[in-house]
Computed example of a mutant assay.
Amino acid sequence: MVDAAEIELLTGSLRELFAEAAADVSIDVPARLRELGWDGVSAENPARATTLLFVEKGRALSTAALLDETLLPLLATDLPGGIGPGSAVCYPAPGTGSGLSSTPQATTGILVRRPAAGERLVIPVADTDGVHLAVGYADDFTVTPLPSLDPSAGWYAVSGPTPAERCAGDAWATALATAHRALAAELIGIAERALELAVEHTGSRRQFGAPIAAFQAVRHRLADGYVTIAAARALLDASFADTADPGVAALAAKARAGRAHDLVSANAVQVCGAMGATLEHALHRYVNRGAILDALLGSGAELTAELGGMARRRVAAGEGIPLLVEV
Rank of each mutant, 00 (worst) to 15 (best):
L33Q: 08
A230F: 01
S265R: 00
E192T: 06
D150T: 01
F215T: 09
A194C: 10
L279I: 06
S102G: 03
D294N: 04
L235Q: 14
R181E: 10
A93H: 03
L236R: 10
R181V: 11
D294E: 07
L251A: 10
P322G: 07
G130D: 03
G154C: 11
R181W: 00
G273T: 02
A157T: 01
T278C: 09
H261A: 04
A213L: 03
D224A: 10
L307N: 02
F141E: 00
T202V: 07
T128Q: 05
E200Y: 01
H261Y: 06
F215D: 03
A234I: 13
R205P: 13
S265E: 01
T108P: 13
I27L: 14
D140H: 06
R193H: 02
L36F: 00
L75E: 02
A106G: 08
A249L: 07
G300F: 00
T144W: 08
D262Q: 12
V29L: 12
F141A: 00
L9H: 12
R313N: 07
P322Q: 05
L324S: 07
A295C: 13
N45Q: 14
A305C: 05
H180R: 11
P161E: 10
W172F: 13
P80S: 15
R233Y: 04
N45E: 02
L36R: 08
A260I: 09
W38K: 11
I321Q: 05
E319Y: 09
V89Y: 10
V89F: 11
V199H: 09
V131N: 04
P94T: 11
T107S: 07
H284G: 13
Q207R: 08
L146V: 04
A295P: 12
L235N: 01
L303D: 09
A274S: 09
A93V: 09
L53K: 10
A49Q: 07
L235Y: 01
L9Y: 09
Y137V: 14
T142W: 05
V2T: 15
T278Q: 04
S13N: 04
A116K: 13
L67R: 08
V131P: 10
S239C: 13
G273M: 00
F18R: 08
H284T: 15
T63C: 06
R285F: 14
S152G: 09
D129V: 05
L133W: 00
V41N: 06
G154I: 10
P151Q: 14
P163E: 03
V112C: 11
F215M: 02
L121T: 15
I7L: 12
A282V: 02
R205T: 10
M310Y: 14
A138K: 05
G118Q: 06
G95L: 14
D24L: 02
A157K: 14
R181H: 02
L296D: 11
D39W: 06
V25N: 14
R193Y: 01
R219G: 15
M310W: 04
I188T: 02
A64K: 15
D140Y: 05
G209R: 07
Y156A: 07
L251D: 11
R221T: 05
E6Y: 07
A316T: 03
L183G: 12
R205L: 04
T77K: 15
G320I: 11
A232H: 03
T11A: 13
